[in-house]
């Protein structure tokens, strides 16, 4: 399967640029909207890889639901005011952090450049999925057979998250 290099580069460059904006923008709402764009670029890359279901879910769940939640939280907390001092770190710390980041990036680039000798192939290919009835069908069958354990455990994880959120949000500090 080939993916068109032009489309891939467009999406990747946009994803990187918007990710940088998420971090650099001072206004939290602008950051949140940059994040939406990052999610759209990811969805584009997934679609290029023939993973249409994942691309659709990426847009529905991440770009839709999660970002709306972010913006709600930003509005409710009125997060325009920074709650603690940021950006006051020592210049030496900044330089060191920069060097470390570049070093990590270099390590990753080197590793990806040098590991092309073997390309493991899985059970499925794009054609096989087509014959079996498409992404959605294959994915949902697998979720309820082979991957039933992680699938069910994810709901336990969500339950823990809900109980935790209730425990934190339910009572006001003054009521104690």
């Amino acid at each position: 399967m080939d993916i068109s290099p032009i489309a891939f580069y467009i999406f990747s460059v946009m994803a990187i640029a918007f990710s940088a904006l998420v971090v650099l923008k001072k206004n939290p709402v602008a950051s949140a909207f940059s994040l939406v764009m990052v999610f759209f670029c990811f969805a584009g890359i997934y679609a290029l890889l023939d993973a249409h279901l994942v691309a659709a879910l990426q847009i529905l769940v991440y770009a839709g639901a999660i970002t709306v939640l972010f913006i709600f939280v930003i509005m409710l907390l009125n997060a325009d005011v920074p709650s603690f001092d940021i950006g006051r770190s020592h210049i030496l710390v900044k330089i060191l952090a920069g060097v470390a980041a570049v070093a990590v990036l270099a390590a990753f680039v080197w590793a990806f450049k040098n590991s092309a000798q073997i390309q493991p192939t899985g059970t499925f290919s794009a054609e096989k999925i087509q014959t079996l009835g498409g992404n959605t069908r294959v994915l949902s069958t697998l979720l309820f057979s082979e991957y039933i354990l992680p699938f069910e455990l994810t709901s336990v994880l969500l339950l823990a998250g809900i109980v935790g959120a209730v425990a934190i949000a339910k009572r006001k500090p003054s009521q104690q």
């Binding site: 354990l149 992680p150 455990l153 336990v156 994880l157 823990a160 998250g161 935790g164 425990a167 934190i168």
Partner: peptide, 18 residues
């Protein structure tokens, strides 16, 4: 399985954070 390992690690961590 690495997926199960990660999910259960998160179940544990999330509860303990709270």
């Amino acid at each position: 399985d690495l997926i199960v390992l990660f999910i259960s690690l998160e179940i544990m961590s999330l509860s303990v954070y709270v």
